[in-house]
Each structure stands twice: as C-alpha cells, then as structure tokens.
Design a protein around this nucleic acid. Structure first.
Length: 428
RNA sequence: GGAGAGGUGGCCGAGUGGUUUAAGGCGGCUGUCUUGAAAACAGUUGACCGAAAGGUCCGGGGGUUCGAAUCCCUCCCUCUCCGCCA
C-alpha cells in the first residue's frame, strides 16, 4: 500500500511512477475521496468536541429543566454525528479498497520496458552446457530412471501433479536440509516452520489479496488460503507488531509447500516439473530498517547465489524491467539456472525489495533508536531456492550417458556419501 | 464438540455508566551519583488522523445511551475442565 500522504502531496511523482508500470490506478478517485474524507472528518470532529463538552456538563448538573433541555440538545447532536460517521465510514471503505489495488512504485533504477523481453541480464556465472542429443530433458530422464511418476500423479490429483520416487525423493529432502543449513549456519537466518494455511488478512498483508485471489487455493468452509510461498506466512509472522529498536534486521528462512492454481498458464510448460500446482521451496524473508534495504537486497541475492555456486550450476542474474515487476515489488532480481536438456533458463529464485509497501498493509513497524515515532520496516524476500527447478537443473546438468546422475559434491554428505543416483526400480 | 473464564499502551496489569485526561509496575529515554558501568534515586515515556485546534483508539464489527473500556448482540482469539484425536 502506498502512503496516502505521498499521493496527496506528490501526485505527479506518483502518477509518473505508475505510468512507467503501464497501469491506470484510480489516483483521481483516491485524491477526491481523500479530500472528501478530510472535510467530513473536520466537521464531525467539531461536533464531537461539542458533544463531549455538553455531556460533561450534564454529568455535573443537578436534575432539572436545564439538564433535560441539554440532554435533548445532545440527543439531536448525536443523531447528526451518527449520520456523518456513517458517511465517513463509507468514504473510508471506498478509499481503502482503492488503495489496496494500487501497485508499488518501481525504484528509479529499474529499467523501463513493456514485458520480460526488456529484462536486463546483469551477469552470468559458470559455463552453460551446450544442448545435445545425449542430454535428455528431465521429464524423459526422470521417468526412464524411475525417479518421477508423472502418470500416477495425474491419476491421483490431476495434471501438474507428480510423485517423486526413491532417490529422487531423498535428493529433495537432502537439498532442503542442506539449503536451510547453509542459510542458518553461514548466512545467519533463523529457521521457521510456517503454517501453509493462512487467513485472508495475511494474504492482504503480502499483497496476494484482494487482487490475486484467483491464483490461490481457498477453503471456503474455514475461509483459509493455501500459501503460494512461505513469504506469506513469514512476512505476516510480524503482522501488527511494533518491533523493538535494535532488533533489526530480522532474517528468517522457511521451507514450505507452495500451492498455485496456475489458472492462467494452461498449456504452458506442461511437461515435467517446471510449473506445477504444489512444490517445495526454501524462502528467505528479511525485515530491515528503511535505509538498509538497498544493501540488504544484494546480500539476499548473494545468499541465494551461494546455493547455486555450491551446487556448481551455471546461472544468470536478471533484473526485472517495469513491465515484469510484481504488484508488490519496487525492485526484483531473478536467478535463472541453465537446464541444457529442456534448453531453458529456469527461474529458481526471485529476490525483491518491497520497501514499506507490505509493511503498511501488514502494519509492521519498528521503534527507532532515538525513541521517535514508530516507522514502517522494509520487507524483502528471496527464494533460496525453489526445489523442482533446482532438481531439474541437477538432473540435466549432472546426467551421464548411461542415464545415471552424479550427486553434486556438497550434497553427498547429506546422502550418506552416495556419489551417483543409479536407475531406480522401474515404475511398474 | 460440551461447560466455564478471559482479551486494556512496547510488555504486565488496575479499572463494572460521568473529574479516567486509562492507575500502578516492567521496559525505554534523560538526569543525579560514578573514572566508566551496574545498583539506587528523580524526572520522562502510548498509537493513529490533522497545519493546528481538536478528534479517534481498551480484540474486530454492530447496538443501547446526552455520555460506553464499563451494558447488549455478533464474530475472532486465548486459557481451564471434559470429550475426541496423530
């Protein structure tokens, strides 16, 4: 949510920033409602001051004609106040609703562009393998090797569901444990195991609601939502809190299942496990002081990159242009790992600075060291990393001509020293 | 699921219709003392809207009343006992 005062005081700046996003936020309606709200408020508050004074007199006065007259007077005043209160509530509600639909403003250094074609490749790491006939895409490889059962996933749950089998399931567990160990031991994050079902307020806090409800799974009976990322649970961990001075930054890492309806990607990436309805992800979330968030984005990015480097997987760093920013981000940088079998750069991590956008929605503030007024924190998050795509990259980069897969050196300790994943018992 | 008790400032906690302008404590900040710190003592310290005056806020929402933290309705949450349960 944007600061209403910013919209009021620098409407042209806000308008220009939104124009870069190619969105048509109803700024004029917002300004008009804001104006209306404030003039109503002035009137009703004046009347309330009168009523407070009048009621106080009644409390002191002895019973009698004077007192009865005053009471009648105040009753009438009360009716007027009730009417105005009603109007204020209505205007407030409309204003708030509009504000919730305005996207975050892009940082000045975000490149302009209409869509992903204008994203900027910042740099590469590692040597991407040339695709060749001897490098199979993971969907063929994994099925042949008995590592993933796609058919039964579809039978049990539908398209975009699958079973990991045998050493593949073990590999995922090992990866999760290893990634979390790196982030907690080497990068100083606190591990959280979060709920994957959350209330609507939490979804509003991170910006998933009200706009993107149709991409989420929802249980109507209990009115709970399945999270699309642990970002939702972990960011809302501090919702409606006033954090103590000196406790920032707060850094959390959480593994969770993520659930996505993928309603609008029908027909895209239908093969394999690149785009699925349910997947594991290790997610990092930071709550930081506003002046630090620029630097914190880069250290977050580095934390994610460390995982790919240790796995020795070639990747590239891509900065999103204005046309490819998410609703809540001011700045977003993705890591894309090379998959030579699929011949695709896979987004395995998305690192973003939300500035105070989420903090306003979720009401997360901190008390400054100097004891001044509480301020909103800045929130950031980044995947560290998404499991299916990381496993695609491992399968496709580490496969050998006979179909076996070499275990990346850093993971062997987590797999009892195992060096190679051989063909698993067939899918029978 | 049944019965009961609760939800008050950053935290704990008093307050059952009108000088409450929410007591008191903890924590924070400032000062005295000290080489420095701790302790002790003293002072100070809620959030939100507003340029200000002022107004709003006692779990959320609604109601009763001239006036509600206080009474009523409703929802959410916590705790205790019972039942069920991985």
């Amino acid at each position: 949510m944007l600061d209403l005062r910013l919209i009021r005081e620098q409407p042209d700046m806000v308008r220009d920033a939104l124009r870069r996003l190619n969105t048509d936020a109803p700024l004029d309606d917002i300004l008009q409602l804001d104006e209306q709200r404030r003039s109503l408020l002035t009137r009703v508050e004046e009347l309330k001051a009168q009523r407070n004074a009048g009621s106080k007199e009644i409390g002191k006065a002895a019973a009698g004609q004077e007192r009865d007259k005053k009471i009648a007077e105040m009753r009438q005043l009360g009716d007027t106040i009730a009417e105005l209160d009603e109007e204020v509530r209505d205007v407030d509600e409309r204003l708030h609703k509009l504000l919730l639909e305005v996207p975050n403003l892009p940082d000045p250094d975000v490149p302009d562009g209409p869509d992903e074609s204008a994203n900027v490749i910042v740099r590469h790491w590692g040597d991407p393998k040339e695709p060749s006939d001897s490098i199979a895409p993971h969907w063929d490889l994994a099925e042949n090797q008995g590592l993933i059962d796609f058919e039964r996933g579809v039978k049990v749950s539908g398209s975009r569901f699958y079973f990991l089998r045998a050493d593949m399931a073990r590999l995922q567990r090992a990866l999760i444990t290893w990634m979390i160990d790196i982030h907690t031991r080497e990068h100083d994050y606190i591990e959280l195991t979060p709920p994957v079902l959350v209330r609507s307020e939490s979804m509003v806090g991170t910006g998933n609601l009200p706009k993107f409800g149709d991409t989420l799974y929802h249980d109507e009976e209990s009115d709970l939502w399945l999270i699309p990322t642990a970002e939702v649970s972990v960011t809302n961990y501090h919702r409606d809190e006033l954090l103590d001075a000196g406790t920032l930054p707060r850094k959390y890492v959480a593994q969770s299942l993520c659930f996505r309806r993928e309603q609008f990607s029908a027909g895209r990436d239908v093969r394999g496990i690149k785009r699925v309805h349910q997947f594991e992800k290790v997610e990092m979330v930071k709550f930081v002081e506003p002046e630090k968030s620029d630097d914190e984005l880069y250290s977050l990015l580095d934390n994610a990159e460390q995982i790919l480097r240790k796995l020795e997987l070639p990747y590239r760093v891509v900065q999103m242009c204005t046309g490819d920013l998410s609703f809540v981000s001011a700045k977003k940088i993705d890591l894309e790992v090379w998959a030579p079998g699929s011949e695709d750069w896979l987004e395995v991590s998305s690192c973003a600075n939300f500035r105070d956008f989420q903090a306003r929605r979720a009401n997360i503030r901190f008390r400054t060291e100097d004891g001044g007024r509480p301020q909103y924190v800045h929130t950031l998050n980044g995947s560290g990393l998404a499991l299916p795509r990381t496993m695609i990259a491992i399968l496709e980069n580490y496969q050998q001509p006979d179909g076996s897969i070499v275990v990346p050196a850093v993971l062997r300790g987590y797999l009892g020293g195992q060096e190679v994943i051989e063909k698993q018992p067939g899918i029978w």
